[in-house]
């Protein structure tokens, strides 16, 4: 805020100058102020980024710990703890956890891919159908139906745990990846429907009308005109669904038992039970298990973050 100068009985040269050219004085005082403001702002920014950097360093400690521990030999860990930079970048931890006779993570990684890819595709496919039905057609009860589907986003999985466990037993899919694929497909429908409906709602109707006039039917409009437009929305959902399903632990933990149908997260937790003091192995397993989602995070972060806000703000 500009302080007003106290009135002086004898006009100073500056003021006289100012009277001749009011703008000159204004410009000068503004420049003078802005120097002060400039430095205050500089200082404020330095403090702000200083604080942010400290918080960031604290935030990154767990990540740093996991990375350096993964590359240390057992001997080095027990001699010096986990927090020093590894003396020689050893790959033995990775080899051990991937070895079919030890950690066997290769099998679990494969299982997780066999689960995550179909479940993501199916939930996105079904969500696209539902989103189109709700976004481009008006019918009695459409709003209610939309709320009914989106409400599923908020359901705690615990409420369905026991009945789904029973259902999968009854239809003979318990302890297969199919059980987990089906559950993730179904539980992914709400978020996929939400994103796709919001997407289809903003696609101009003129496109549809024009195609109708050209003699296209409803289904060829959907397949030939609408679907190609949805690529960005599909990318958003693909990153989200892949990340959630890959990282999920509860459903495969409940629905599978034998090693042949074990997913990576269940496998990693098993590993920590077997090798309680094998910190290097656990760290290597954690890195391996996070690689696919880290890859998505690094290369498709824009879509991932967009999906998070879409799901959150509009939901």
């Amino acid at each position: 805020m500009t302080k007003r100068e106290p009135p002086t009985p004898n006009p100073s040269p500056k003021m006289r100058e100012g009277l001749q050219d009011p703008n000159a004085d204004f410009a000068k005082s503004k420049r003078g102020e802005s120097d002060k403001v400039h430095w205050a702002r500089r200082l404020g920014e330095a403090l702000r980024y200083g604080a942010l950097t400290i918080v960031l360093i604290l935030f990154m400690v767990p990540v740093y710990g996991a990375i350096v521990t993964a590359f240390k030999t057992q001997a080095e860990v027990s001699a010096g703890g986990y927090w020093t930079i590894p003396r020689s970048f050893a790959s033995e931890n990775f080899a051990r956890v991937m070895d079919p006779d030890a950690g066997n993570l290769g099998l679990y990684l494969g299982n997780s891919l066999l689960l995550t890819i179909p479940a993501s595709l199916l939930s996105i496919g079904l969500g696209t159908l539902a989103g189109y039905g709700l976004g481009k057609y008006r019918f009695r009860g459409d709003g209610l139906l939309f709320i009914f589907i989106v409400a599923g986003m908020f359901l705690p999985p615990q409420i369905a745990l026991i009945p789904v466990f029973r259902l999968m037993n009854d239809i003979g899919l318990y302890d297969t990846l199919w059980a987990v694929i089906i559950v993730h497909t179904a539980f992914g429908i709400p978020i996929c429907t939400l994103v796709m409906r919001n997407f289809f709602q903003v696609v101009p109707n003129a496109l549809r009308e024009a195609a109708l006039i050209d003699g296209a039917n409803e289904y060829s409009i959907f397949l030939r005109i609408m679907l190609p437009l949805t690529l960005p929305a599909l990318a958003v959902l693909a990153t989200l669904q892949f990340t959630w399903i890959w990282n999920d632990f509860l459903w495969p933990f409940i629905l599978t038992q034998k090693a042949e149908s074990r997913t990576i997260m269940v496998g990693i937790l098993n590993l920590t039970g077997q090798y309680t003091v094998d910190w290097g192995g656990q760290a290597a397993a954690s890195l391996i298990g996070s690689l696919p989602t880290l890859f998505i995070f690094i290369f498709f972060q824009r879509y991932f973050i967009k999906g998070l806000t879409l799901g959150a703000v509009k939901g």
Binding site: P62, G65, Y82, W246, N247, I268, Q301, I305
Partner: peptide, 19 residues
């Protein structure tokens, strides 16, 4: 960097924090 933990599984976060 602040977003990074979002893409990690709670299982892995748990394991890391145990150390």
């Amino acid at each position: 960097l602040f977003y990074l933990p979002i893409c990690l599984s709670p299982v892995i976060i748990g394991i890391i924090w145990v150390w």
